[in-house]
Design a binder for these strands. Structure first.
Lengths: 142, 142
DNA sequence: CCTTGACCTCAAGTCGACTTGAAGTAGAAC
DNA sequence: GTTCTACTTCAAGTCGACTTGAGGTCAAGG
């Protein structure tokens, strides 16, 4: 068997073993079996873990990911869900772009105090009016 | 006095009153005084709240913001800190851009399963290698 | 055979930013 | 003067994704 020890999976996937147990509890991954008490993993779990990591960085919650990546069988990922997430990312990217530019301006702005800088004030107004949303839940892009 | 009631501040700032009390406890804002038990606020608190909101969307923690926005006196914001945050945002924006494009491709990709799509596999490898970081702490951009 | 130490389980803790709930108070309308 | 109700305090709860700690097990090396 080329089955992997939990420590090896952890090391190769770049996550602590505790995370692997946690993911198992959540139904995201599963060992092929046990040797004594110890979990043995098929190397394919690494790909699954990569997929999970990818889902996380795209802003999916573990619960959402659990729906796409059942521990048995191949991942089934709804393409429209991907498209939706891409849209969401795109919106967030544009917001962040505005924010970045404004921060840059404020950093370089010669006004004695930021409060007196028109750009900064514009930002404040935008923030106050809610057009630049504050991150509530963990989203890719806050 | 044109002082404001907590309810009015809450409504105008678009946050619940509980948040205002919480911010006060954190040293982010302060009422000018009390009428009976009730907090009275200077209208300037709205600007301060806008600044706090802005800081949050830029990815600063409340503790960081507390350092910039002392409840007394004008905000003192380090320009290099702004520049650093802008840089950080910029990096995150680029990462998210790659991710968005890849998601779009995967959504449109004709490969029967995502696992067989080269672009998707490329993403997986990137996620696995850590070049597309998973949001650990709440960052603007995850 | 015995020790070692990596693994195991399960419950509880952490972190940040708030929210919620119970119990109390006081300004204002009647 | 009574009632109404928006406010008050303080402690505890929530959410997501894990981590940590105590106490137990067992395969492998000496």
């Amino acid at each position: 068997m080329t089955d992997l020890d939990i420590a090896e999976v952890a090391q190769r996937a770049g996550v602590p073993a505790s995370t692997l147990r946690f993911y198992e509890e959540k139904g995201l991954i599963a060992p092929t079996g046990r040797r004594g008490l110890r979990r043995q993993y098929d190397p394919g779990v690494l790909e699954r873990l990569a997929l999970i990591a990818l889902g996380r960085t795209a802003g999916f919650s573990l619960d959402e990911i659990a729906h796409m990546v059942a521990p048995d069988g191949p991942p089934r990922i709804d393409r429209s869900m991907l498209a939706d997430k891409a849209e969401e990312l795109d919106r967030r990217i544009r917001e962040l772009g505005v924010l970045r530019d404004s921060l840059r301006h404020a950093a370089a702005c010669p006004a004695p105090s930021h409060i007196e800088c028109p750009t900064f004030r514009g930002l404040l107004d935008a923030a106050a009016s809610g057009s630049v949303p504050t991150p509530r839940r963990r989203m890719p892009g806050g």
